[in-house]
């Protein structure tokens, strides 16, 4: 991570010419023009982030730094705040205290255009959330055409290329309810990628899937990681987290209790709560 170029350039060539995942040129422009948004070494930075729903404090001071091209896995019990953290980064929830910086720009500051911020962040949900009244291809081209103003035929061409790349080309004219859960989730990932995001947030994307469909979705995520996509992944798939993560963060009751390389967190956890959590996972045969 020592190179000065901190734009999340995935190198379109790795993914094939038509399936460039990040509009690197656009981000480079920002860097060259001295745009403060690109002056940082960090893709994501959370400082003392607090979030409450009524009396319930879900996030109780989160500090986290994600470098470009890094894959961070968030682990922890249900209700520990993983999903809320991701939703805060995407501004789907507003934080009560602290700040969130994307490429050095404070996106929690007043007056920030949240639509403009979300354009650069892809999020994939546990329950897929595809638009049921649109075909697969329309699901994918909605964002590029209506938000980025890409002409429809161009957006469709790019969308088809992404579908080919992820083995979904036969499904482009189907409606989501004709697809298996695994296929739906892969389409949801492609839909997010079509916006050429600089960061992907994955919120327990395999939790709603039948066990035999999990691997096809994890395969797609591995491919993204290999291509250098910056990712924040909330997951219950510990084996997967150990494989893919540059860093694992253990969340407990709204704080990050422990973080480090997966080898360290999974084999020699320092915190007793982490040990307890991992022991339960091992007992359940999930690691």
């Amino acid at each position: 991570m020592s190179e000065p170029d901190v734009t999340p350039d995935l190198g379109g060539a790795q993914l094939g010419d038509t399936a460039q995942l990040v509009d690197a040129a656009k981000l480079d422009d920002g860097a060259q023009n001295g745009d403060p948004a690109f002056a940082s070494q960090e893709a994501v930075r959370l400082e003392d982030v607090h979030k409450s729903f009524g009396d319930l404090e879900v996030l109780r001071g989160i500090d986290l730094s994600v470098a470009p091209h890094q894959v961070i896995c968030l682990i922890g019990a249900s209700g520990s705040g993983k999903s809320t953290l991701l939703r805060c980064v995407n501004l789907l929830e507003s934080v009560n205290r602290g700040r969130i910086l994307l490429w050095g720009q404070d996106v929690t500051a007043p007056g920030v255009d949240e639509n403009a911020v979300r354009r650069h962040i892809g999020i994939v949900f546990q329950s897929f959330n595809l638009f049921p009244h649109m075909t697969v291809l329309r699901n994918i081209t909605l964002g590029p055409t209506r938000v980025l103003g890409v002409p429809r035929d161009e957006a469709e061409e790019a969308g088809r290329a992404l579908l080919v790349r992820f083995g979904l080309s036969e499904k482009q004219d189907d409606y989501p309810d004709r697809l298996s859960g695994g296929q739906q989730q892969r389409v949801a990932i492609v839909r997010a990628l079509a916006m050429q995001p600089g960061i992907m947030l994955l919120d327990e994307v395999t939790s709603a899937l039948d066990p035999e469909l999990v691997s096809e979705v994890l395969g797609v995520i591995r491919e993204l990681a290999a291509a250098g996509m910056t990712m924040l992944i909330a997951t219950h798939e510990m084996g997967f987290a150990r494989d893919i993560a540059d860093r694992v963060c253990f969340l407990d009751e709204g704080v990050i209790l422990e973080q480090g390389p997966p080898g360290q967190v999974f084999t020699a956890p320092g915190n007793s709560r982490t040990q307890q959590f991992l022991r339960r996972i091992v007992d359940a045969g999930r690691l």
Binding site: R87, N90, L92, N115, A116, R118, R119, I121, G122, I123, F125, N129, L130, F131, L142, G143, R146, V147, L148, R191, A192, M195
Partner: peptide, 10 residues
Amino acid sequence: QVAAARSLGL
């Protein structure tokens, strides 16, 4: 559905 739409930047 709204969350999915807004997250695309709509």
